[in-house]
Computed example of a mutant assay.
Amino acid sequence: MSGWLQAEDHLRGFGGFHGGLALALLASAMRAHAPELELQSVTGRFDRPLGAGFSIDSRLVRAGRTLSVVGAGAQGEKGTAIEASAVFARRGEDAWQPVTPAPPAAPGPEACEVFAIPAEFVPIATSMEIRPVGAARPYAGGPVPELIAWVRLVEDDEAPDVLRFILLMDALAPSYAAVLSTLAVVPTVELTVRQGAGLAGAVSPWVLLRATTLAASPDGWVDEHIDAWGPDGTHLGSAHQLRVVRAV
């Protein structure tokens, strides 16, 4: 992937080009350096928002027969905006006892109402359908910093591959926003996404996400964990976000 990419307005999140989509594009570029290996983990550090356009560069950091490390960056008009790295590995034998988290109790997506995010607030939300589970909503002043919802991309009915999965893992509002009663921005500083073994067998476009704030400091740093399951309860993967709260 080379050249200048135009960051069209409908692909923006809150305040800039959508972080999950940007990380998926970086992962795609890095995958070219390890075409025979599977993506195990990808991490992006967001130094500044991406504006109207950007370019992507990628490089092989370490090549191995069973494991490779690749790096990449997104360069905006003001310099480096995102620095990323990924681990790719050859699939091994199924010789070990798997451990996966159990999904939360949730009705199917058809039983949950659509949560419409205003396009002027988060333009890329028009490309996603979000159906919350339970009463928690962003900025509703709830008791628990957690959000659970079914999400899918509306432009196709394909089950998520690894790149779609990276995008969807950044689909929800910050879980910390569930305990806020006034508007504040909670941008991502660092995002790590790891696919689970179940993602390869996914057959539904719907993904059940549970985003939970594990800890939040008095000065606004938020440690968030996200898990994903398919409608059949199969664990699809997880993500970890470092966020920071800032007053509007």
Score class of each variant (00 low, 15 high):
residue 83 E to C: 11
residue 227 D to N: 10
residue 68 S to M: 07
residue 224 E to L: 07
residue 41 S to G: 08
residue 232 D to T: 05
residue 79 G to A: 04
residue 244 V to W: 09
residue 243 R to E: 01
residue 71 G to R: 04
residue 3 G to Y: 12
residue 139 Y to W: 15
residue 181 S to G: 15
residue 245 V to P: 04
residue 63 A to C: 13
residue 89 A to H: 09
residue 96 W to P: 04
residue 243 R to H: 01
residue 243 R to W: 02
residue 35 P to W: 13
residue 30 M to K: 03
residue 154 V to F: 10
residue 245 V to T: 10
residue 173 A to D: 14
residue 176 Y to N: 07
residue 82 I to H: 03
residue 134 G to L: 02
residue 43 T to C: 08
residue 76 G to Y: 01
residue 198 G to Q: 00
residue 26 L to N: 02
residue 5 L to D: 12
residue 130 I to H: 00
residue 128 M to R: 09
residue 85 S to K: 08
residue 116 A to Q: 13
residue 230 G to L: 01
residue 11 L to W: 06
residue 161 D to R: 01
residue 131 R to P: 02
residue 55 S to D: 11
residue 105 A to N: 09
residue 27 A to H: 04
residue 160 P to F: 02
residue 61 V to I: 15
residue 148 I to C: 05
residue 135 A to N: 10
residue 60 L to V: 09
residue 146 E to K: 13
residue 63 A to W: 13
residue 111 A to I: 03
residue 70 V to T: 12
residue 101 P to S: 11
residue 93 E to N: 10
residue 83 E to M: 12
residue 53 G to T: 01
residue 247 A to V: 09
residue 77 E to T: 15
residue 179 V to D: 04
residue 237 G to D: 01
residue 65 R to E: 11
residue 176 Y to Q: 09
residue 130 I to A: 01
residue 41 S to H: 14
residue 26 L to C: 04
residue 50 L to K: 07
residue 112 C to L: 03
residue 236 L to V: 03
residue 202 A to Q: 00
residue 162 V to K: 05
residue 47 D to P: 05
residue 96 W to A: 15
residue 31 R to G: 15
residue 196 G to D: 05
residue 174 P to C: 05
residue 141 G to V: 09
residue 95 A to M: 12
residue 125 A to G: 06
residue 226 I to Y: 06
residue 101 P to I: 10
residue 2 S to K: 09
residue 231 P to G: 06
residue 16 G to Q: 06
residue 174 P to F: 00
residue 41 S to D: 14
residue 172 L to R: 02
residue 150 W to F: 02
residue 109 P to K: 08
residue 107 P to S: 06
residue 74 A to P: 04
residue 141 G to N: 12
residue 67 L to G: 08
residue 87 V to Q: 13
residue 110 E to C: 08
residue 43 T to R: 05
residue 210 R to I: 05
residue 193 V to Y: 00
residue 141 G to Q: 09
residue 11 L to D: 03
